[in-house]
Simulated assay, not measured.
Amino acid sequence: MSNKSTRCSACKYLRRKCSEDCILAPHFPATDPERFVHVHKIFGAGNVSRMLQKLPYNEREVAANSISYEAYLRVQDPVYGIAGTITNLQEEIHRKQQELVRIKAEIAIYTAGNL
Rank of each mutant, 00 (worst) to 15 (best):
M1F: 14
S2H: 12
S2K: 13
N3I: 09
K4V: 15
S5C: 08
T6P: 02
R7D: 05
C8S: 08
C8T: 06
S9Y: 03
Y13R: 09
Y13L: 10
L14N: 13
R15S: 12
R15C: 07
K17G: 08
K17R: 14
S19E: 08
S19A: 10
I23V: 15
L24W: 10
L24E: 05
A25K: 15
P26M: 07
P26E: 06
P26V: 04
P26I: 06
H27M: 04
H27N: 07
F28H: 05
F28E: 03
A30T: 10
T31N: 07
D32K: 14
E34K: 15
E34H: 09
E34T: 15
E34A: 10
R35I: 01
R35Y: 02
F36S: 08
F36Q: 04
H38V: 04
V39A: 08
H40Y: 07
H40T: 05
F43V: 06
F43Q: 07
A45P: 03
G46P: 04
V48R: 02
S49R: 14
S49K: 12
S49V: 11
R50W: 09
R50D: 12
R50S: 14
L52W: 11
K54A: 14
L55S: 05
P56I: 13
Y57C: 00
N58M: 04
R60W: 11
R60M: 10
V62K: 06
V62L: 06
V62G: 02
V62E: 05
I67F: 00
I67S: 01
I67K: 00
Y69N: 00
E70L: 02
E70K: 07
E70I: 05
A71Q: 11
L73W: 14
L73K: 14
R74W: 01
Q76E: 12
P78Y: 04
G81H: 07
I82G: 03
A83Q: 06
A83Y: 01
T85M: 03
T85Q: 00
I86W: 02
I86D: 01
T87E: 05
N88C: 02
L89C: 05
Q90E: 03
Q90W: 04
E91I: 00
E92V: 04
E92R: 09
E92K: 11
H94M: 01
K96F: 03
Q97R: 08
Q97T: 12
Q97K: 06
Q98A: 07
E99K: 10
E99C: 08
E99L: 14
V101T: 01
I103T: 00
K104I: 04
K104Q: 11
K104W: 04
A105H: 08
E106S: 13
E106C: 06
I107A: 03
A108F: 09
A108C: 06
I109Q: 04
I109W: 00
I109N: 03
Y110S: 10
Y110K: 15
T111V: 09
A112M: 10
A112T: 11
G113R: 14
N114G: 09
L115F: 15
L115K: 11
